[in-house]
Design a protein around this nucleic acid. Structure first.
Length: 264
DNA sequence: ATGGTTGGGGTCCAA
């Protein structure tokens, strides 16, 4: 089973690139963030035609919005966490018994200071809330996959310059502390770094505000796939499709994919 | 230190 997560930055602007990427990767389940559309206007028929007939959408006007799309028979049920008024989470129970959580963590604004920046405060609070939820409602023995745009690059080689980004939102010590608390809550393991070791630079996002993203290569790894310990041995592939950033009319994020062996 | 680009909804805010 293949699972892909992708911050799409407006689903309606990306139908061509989504079509191309789904043909190339062929995931069984696709988790999207920042669909930037109300639930009623999601392109349901577009995904139906591509075989993604199970569709759970939590939309919002203008901002945010998440979706989980599955091929026939992959998804049993859906849930959502009541976290805030914003559309930032959906989870499903997969047919193989695994629980899959899709998050769009708040970006947090420009100034990394909770006193002067409400958005940064909200981001840290959001991490506290979901960490508490996993501590109170799940254990390390459960089969859980957590994916999404977590808007934090925790490792030194998850950013183009550790030193230059220490005071930049997404790589500050306080954010890294928060993402690590979530990571440790039920002993998640990083399914992507299983295949690309922490000594290697690895990014999933490149700003639009660079003349040549490939040349400057000032990326960050903001998009993640974590699994609990019982699933870790069965993750047989992990990949960030970096080349997608260079496709026509791209999102600023790239799709991130894992493959699980048939039996868990 | 600053500005660079994109998207949505409506002539500005968020990323």
């Amino acid at each position: 089973m293949k699972i892909t997560t992708w911050n799409i930055n407006s689903i309606r602007k990306r139908l061509d690139i989504v079509h191309r990427v789904l043909n190339e990767i062929q995931p069984d389940v696709l988790c999207l963030q920042e669909i930037k559309v109300i639930t009623e206007l999601f392109p349901y028929e577009f995904f139906n035609k591509l075989g993604y007939v199970t569709q759970y959408i939590k939309g919002q006007s203008g901002y945010n919005g998440v979706a989980i799309l599955g091929k026939f028979g992959t998804i049993k049920d859906v849930q959502e966490m009541q976290l805030s008024s914003e559309s930032r989470h959906l989870s499903v129970l997969l047919s193989n018994g695994i629980e899959l959580h899709n998050f769009y963590i708040p970006a947090g604004g420009d100034v990394p200071d909770s006193v002067v920046n409400e958005k940064f405060k909200y981001k840290l609070q959001f991490f506290d809330d979901i960490t508490a939820w996993f501590l109170n409602n799940r254990t390390a023995k459960d089969k859980i996959i957590l994916v999404g745009d977590l808007n934090v690059a925790p490792l030194e080689n998850d950013v183009w310059s550790h030193k230059q980004l220490l005071k930049v939102v997404s790589h500050t010590p306080v954010e890294i502390e928060k993402i690590n608390s979530l990571y440790k809550s039920i002993d998640f393991l990083d399914a992507i770094r299983k295949f690309i070791p922490p000594e290697q630079k690895l990014y999933s996002w490149w700003s639009y505000r660079n003349r040549d993203w490939r040349k400057s290569d000032r990326g960050r790894r903001l998009d993640h796939i974590w699994v609990t310990q019982p699933l870790f041995p069965y993750v047989i592939e992990g990949h960030i499709a970096r080349e997608v950033r260079g496709y026509l009319n791209p999102s600023d994020h790239c799709p991130v994919t894992i493959q699980l062996s048939k039996r868990q």
